[in-house]
Amino acid sequence: MKQSRRHSPELRWPVRLILALAGCAIFTTPAGAQGLDFETGGKLLLTRGITSVDGAGGGGITPWALITGNETDRGIGGTAHYTRVDVPDYTFEAYGGAVGFYDRFEVSYTRQEFDTGETGAALGIGDGFTFGQDIYGAKYRIAGDAVYGQDTWLPQIAVGALYKEADHGALLGALGAEDASGVEVYASATKLLLAQSLLFNATLRYTDANQNGLLGFGGQEDMQIQPEVSLGYQLSRRLIIGGEYRFKPDNLAFAKEDDWVDLFAAYAINDHATVTAAYADLGSIATFDDQRGLYLSLQLGF
């Protein structure tokens, strides 16, 4: 087992990089140069997406190429979210905020907490033991336009990175994880097929995260590319239903890890609030199988 590098200063670079990129995004655009003269609002309902459990604008369990916030190419917007998943043996919570710049660039922060409740005692780590992690994210749109590009097959494409820093490094090491922190990079392609009222997203994530990072990073295998897909059908201006599938690594010897699946309905109450409910199947988590339950998320945005 490698020693946890959680507190080594070198691994802080992703955070610095993300902040530096955010700074560049603001001050290199013409609006920024003129002294932060920007607009807010203007996006069409639901086209900012919801907030994924990792804090990036997306679907529920996977990032999308859409940029968070209500801003257009002339403005700045933002979102905050609270997300909760109740499965038989655990409770998962995530909350955080994200800022979108010029519908081009996004930075996000999310805190995740995974409460083992009584299961903690059974696992021998203590009743109510809570795994947790901080997630810093950045995403940049490189091509295409999901909404207006209806005459082309080119989807909206974005690349992003998530720097994740998990709690309890020593314990994660004992469980077989190589690191308590890690960086994931991803590329997402989002296509709205308006004529069919369909929304499609595909993401490739380069990762070695165990249970998304809550159980650390690495173990038996190296970083791998994992695909994630979402499909949505828009029933009305406010309502979209769909499903998602996310492949995941399976790196820890002590417990099998499964892919994640969900069936969701997202409803835009207005321009500023979207609620999402889903049935999520998180599979086996830390030796406890069949973790299926209700996912609920509230996203506020401007």
Binding site: Y148, G149, L194, A195, Q196
Partner: peptide, 13 residues
Amino acid sequence: FRMQNRFLAKLAP
């Protein structure tokens, strides 16, 4: 709604 979207798909570009 889905017919609205078909029309909007023509206007979006």
